[in-house]
């Protein structure tokens, strides 16, 4: 059984309570096909980087689950049918923890990740603190 991350976008003119309902629906589809839900994350209403089906915003939801190909195929088939979901992507991942993903972190997390460039460069704008 492999680990999958299924991220999908629901169009914005759907009420947020309904997004939970759709999330529940897809979770049932996955569990009915023998999948096991590990975590479900609602990233909430985000502005899209470009317009998708004339929408500029969308509700993002991520379902992390463990399952086989049928669970994935069925979930994706349901998403193609449903007209709320405007885009989805299933990704096979090695391991899946319950920890919230980067998207769930509070917006102003400051620069706690110390991954700036090790090599000290002589350029004036060498500070790589991500803006």
């Amino acid at each position: 059984m492999a680990f999958y991350e299924l991220v999908y976008i629901v169009r914005p003119d759907v009420s947020s309570t309904q997004t939970e309902a759709t999330a529940k629906k897809f979770e049932e589809v996955i569990t009915s096909k023998g999948g096991k839900i590990i975590k479900t994350e609602q990233w909430g209403l985000k502005t899209l980087a470009y317009r998708v089906n004339k929408h500029r915003k969308g509700y993002y939801t991520m379902i992390g689950f463990e399952g086989n190909g049928e669970a994935v195929a069925e979930a994706e088939r349901q998403m193609r049918i449903s007209d709320d979901v405007i885009r989805f992507l299933t990704v096979n991942v090695e391991e899946l923890t319950k920890a919230p993903s980067i998207q769930m972190a509070p917006r102003r997390r400051g620069s706690d990740e110390t991954t700036d460039a090790p090599a000290k460069t002589k350029r004036p704008m060498a500070n790589t603190a991500n803006a």
């Binding site: 991954t115 460039a117 090790p118 090599a119 460069t121 350029r123 704008m125």
Partner: peptide, 17 residues
């Protein structure tokens, strides 16, 4: 910073994201 002379890969190493 196009001319940044980066020697080491930012993704390899202990603290790499």
């Amino acid at each position: 910073p196009y001319f940044r002379r980066k020697k080491s890969c930012p993704f390899t190493g202990p603290k790499a994201p």
